[in-house]
Design a protein around this nucleic acid. Structure first.
Length: 548
RNA sequence: AGGGAUGUAGCCAAGUGGUUAAGGCACAGGACUUUGACUCCUGCAUCGCUGGUUCGAGCCCAGCUAUCCCUGCCA
């Protein structure tokens, strides 16, 4: 793994060096309103790695200040996904709702200092008063209420006497600010809605811009790193910190969100795919969610490596999905044991091999890594090879089994084509070959070269397995918007999931544990399905798209 | 259009005034190969545009241009 370095880490390093900060403290603050996806991994990578690398602390904090959108289902899934990613339970788990009491106290403080007021304007009026991008806003007629009146009204908001939307608490800042976020932003709203944690305790809830800086300050966060769309909110973030008067001030820094080519990441669209049945769920291996990627066979280290390599900067950018695939291939190439699985079997009979003989060959688990050991693979007179590895009418440069051809059975004998039995429909039923028994699994005694090597499995010493082949589901041209008149479904291939039954695998494979990853020789990388014990998900296709 | 941010190769991305502009992915050649995989070599940019400052600029200044974000009682 390469070193972690980017402009945010440099900021932290400098703060540590010049004593601005004693110990770094970061947080990952998802709103529990959906499942974590690969975009979140970037935020986790930045915040978690920064804390880890510089000997600091890291909080998982649920930003749960809007009960209309949030649910415990998401709280749980986020926890599990994060735990899987960082390989342990997070040290500190916090909730925005833990600070509802504090937020309320601070709001009262601001009112007492004349820095916040209760505004009776309705939603439409607030919009009108806000002005536009080019015109300043106008001050609310309620802006200059007395402190006592504001206090009384805020108390009324809190006590539940007022219906939703009756009024709001606003920070008194500057209605003519060119930054619209500073035009007396709403910091509290009335919401008669049960919260998944605090229940009916509150009927007023703080808004993000007010709650977030408070949460950061209360937790002693030093570096609050978020995505770039919050850049415009930073002056407000600082305003809240300054006006509440926190001594240790957290600082917000922004980085560009992660986008990936041909991939949708918006919760709205992901949910649509599930609702209309295109995807089987949030953990469908075609989904860009953490749980989907996990089932597909991605590892946390490959995922973090991807984010690191994609880079952390402020440019708007869309990373090539080839980089994501490269990262998992690179890791699995070193770690995944090789196994043979014949996806579309064709029977092969070695005519000159004794009928009842069973011979075992030692095949390396990883040809590049001797420490990975070997396993015994049975060889018998009847075998299966992949239908793609045999052609009666081969194209040029076809190095596999063909009439008049000779080919190496990987790790075993060299065989020569003898004849093919065809079914009435012309398909190949069985191929007869003769083995060069003299050469054994070594090279031919006469020094001739055999170019092709194909994989095989003993017909009697193999297991029947089912393999799900998931293509990359990500098919969106523009990852950010779907053109007029088209729907998300138009972009997805209905055949993106194929189930191949009666694939023939080495015996050792069927007893593998769920989640175990393999490289199926010449067929791509596979992960034993974590849900269905007898199936394997194809997780990454081989890069090479040329025919074997 | 008011404000903020960003523009370095097909895609990311280092670079903070001074040798021939890091690195990765992708791509293209070639070597090797009992996975046509892997591995290994090789190739692949004058820095959005235009002026200016300077002995010297991707880095400084000015103007222009392109893209992204901001008018939720969402986060």
């Amino acid at each position: 793994m390469e070193e972690n370095n980017n402009f945010l880490f440099e900021i932290i390093e400098n703060d540590l060096k010049n004593g601005a900060v004693e110990k770094v403290h970061t947080r990952f603050p998802p709103e529990p309103n959906g499942y974590l996806h690969i975009g979140h991994i970037k935020a986790i990578y930045i915040n978690y790695t920064a804390a880890k690398q510089y000997g600091g602390e890291f909080n998982l904090r649920y930003d749960d200040t809007n009960p209309t959108k949030e649910d415990v289902e998401y709280v749980d899934s986020i926890y599990n996904d994060l735990k899987w990613l960082i390989g342990k339970d997070p040290d500190h788990v916090c909730y925005g709702s833990d600070y509802f009491g504090k937020c309320y106290e601070f709001a009262v403080k601001l009112i007492k200092e004349g820095k916040a007021y209760v505004c009776d304007l309705n939603e439409k009026e607030i919009n009108e008063y806000r002005g536009t991008l080019t015109e300043p806003g106008r001050e609310s007629p309620y802006r200059n209420r007395s402190m006592e009146e504001n206090l009384a009204l805020f108390e009324k908001m809190k006590s539940g006497e007022l219906p939703d939307g009756a009024c709001t608490l606003r920070a008194k800042i500057d209605m003519s600010s060119p930054n619209i976020n500073m035009r007396d932003p709403i910091i509290y709203r009335i919401l008669h809605r049960a919260h998944h944690r605090s229940g009916d305790e509150w009927c007023i809830y703080p808004l993000y811009d007010f709650a977030h800086p408070i949460q950061d300050a209360m937790e002693g966060i030093t570096h609050s790193m978020c995505s770039i769309e919050f850049e415009n909110h930073r002056p407000l973030y600082d305003w809240v910190i300054d006006n509440i008067g926190f001594e240790k001030k957290p600082h917000q820094y922004e980085f560009a969100k992660l986008f990936i080519t041909n991939t949708v990441l918006s919760k709205r669209n992901l949910k649509k795919l599930i609702d209309n049945g295109t995807a089987d769920g949030w953990d469908d291996p075609r989904m860009p969610t953490v749980s989907g990627l996990r089932r597909r066979g991605y590892t946390p280290s490959a995922l973090f490596d991807f984010v690191r390599r994609a880079g952390v900067a402020k440019n708007f950018s869309i990373v090539d999905c080839a980089l994501l695939e490269h990262c998992i291939r690179e890791e699995l190439n070193e770690t995944a044991p090789r196994r043979v699985c014949v996806l579309r079997p064709v029977r092969v009979v070695v005519d000159n091999y004794p009928e009842d003989k069973v011979e075992y060959f030692e095949l390396p688990n990883n040809p590049k890594d001797e420490t990975a050991g070997t396993r015994s693979v049975a060889f018998t007179r009847e075998l299966y090879i992949d239908s793609e590895d045999f052609s009666l009418d081969p194209p040029p440069k076809f190095f596999r089994l063909k009439p008049e051809g000779e080919v190496r059975l990987m790790g075993a004998y060299i065989v020569k084509f003898r004849k093919a039995d065809l079914a009435p429909d012309g398909s190949v039923e069985c191929v007869h070959v003769t083995a060069d028994l003299e050469s054994g699994c070594g090279n031919p005694a006469d020094g001739r070269k055999v170019k092709g090597t194909i994989h095989w499995v003993s017909a009697s010493e193999c297991e029947d397995v089912t393999v799900n082949v998931y293509d990359y589901m990500f098919k969106i041209e523009n990852t950010r918007a779907i053109p007029e008149g088209q729907t998300l479904d138009d972009y997805y291939n209905p055949d993106s999931k194929q189930t191949l039954e009666h694939c023939k695998a080495e015996k050792a494979l069927a007893s593998a544990e769920a989640g175990e990853r393999f490289q199926f020789v010449r067929c791509g990388y596979f992960c034993k399905d974590t849900k269905n014990a007898n199936t394997f998900n194809r997780i990454v296709e081989l890069k090479d798209s040329k025919p074997f």
